[in-house]
Design a protein around this nucleic acid. Structure first.
Lengths: 157, 157
DNA sequence: TGACAATGACAGCCTAGGCAACTAATGTAC
DNA sequence: GTACATTAGTTGCCTAGGCTGTCATTGTCA
């Protein structure tokens, strides 16, 4: 069975890799703009990267920092600094586990819980805007394609 | 016409935005690993981000730094520093235009031209690996979906 | 129990991108 | 021709992620 791209005709600038790169960059840029322009969230100066962490944290129960890292293939050093920033903004709280003192449990503060729905709404709106013209079936198919690519990654999923 | 994601059921962690993020990160990580592990390219310490610039530069007659930035929605400041790194590695060359002395023309050096085919080969191989199990028709459809999303971006394409 | 491995969080150094301020060169309007 | 605007490139400051090494804590095994 022949490969998708072959060495004679492959143009990096037109391939799936390049396109995914571009779409990701454009989408995050729009989310960042909307977050800073929002009346409620603007003063918090929350970025799209920070929203990803809060979203992962808010879905699912009590989580340690390392659980969060494993779940999204995130670097532990980057996570430490990200938590610092979110803690400074008062959106998130660290708690040392008494059972295993190596673990740091993470929890949204009341301010974090209050701000999250609005962030979720903004990310939803931007996503829908990028999917303008898509039927629901097409969107589901796109999700399925991306999932299959993720499963082809060395880390599995 | 109803939207793709609706406010009641939307879960950021499962949407297209999150998936694109993940796929992009996993793909670039693999390309980076392959680039550093390669016998020919390893010593150059070329990153996937640097490859993107070289690929854009080597395809088509676009030459100046700002042309490059516009073509891929790239920040001008980031571009300056990227060119610095690529020039340090001897893969790329700056030339001031004599007609318009504001412009900086970019060109691959002989070393850059020599290294590029191997980079292209590696990025092709990684891309094919992530598309394992895809038919060619599915891959073309995925490309089409991503292009449509790009066209929905505020910057147009 | 004591040596050693494994784990979780963290700090330092690197590449990297976005934004704002600045400089030099060019274009435009009066 | 001078004043102003625009454009290209650069620089500084910020967030951000990857990698390596370090430290404290926990688990394992002889």
């Amino acid at each position: 069975m022949s490969e998708i791209y072959d060495i004679e005709t492959y143009e990096p600038r037109r391939g799936v890799g390049y396109l995914i790169n571009r779409v990701k960059a454009e989408m995050l840029a729009v989310v960042d703009r909307e977050l800073t322009a929002d009346d409620q969230l603007g003063p918090l100066e929350v970025s799209s990267a920070q929203f990803v962490i809060l979203a992962t944290l808010s879905s699912g129960g009590q989580k340690s920092a390392s659980d969060l890292c494993k779940g999204i293939s995130y670097d532990a050093g980057a996570m430490t600094r990200m938590i610092d920033r979110l803690e400074d903004k008062g959106l998130l709280q660290r708690t040392r586990s008494p059972e295993d003192r190596r673990l740091v449990y993470l929890e949204l503060t009341d301010a974090g819980k209050a701000a999250f729905p609005r962030m979720r709404e903004i990310s939803l709106r931007v996503l829908n805007r990028f999917l303008r013209g898509f039927s629901k079936a097409e969107a589901r198919q796109l999700e399925a394609y991306l999932l299959r690519m993720l499963e082809n990654a060395p880390s599995g999923a």
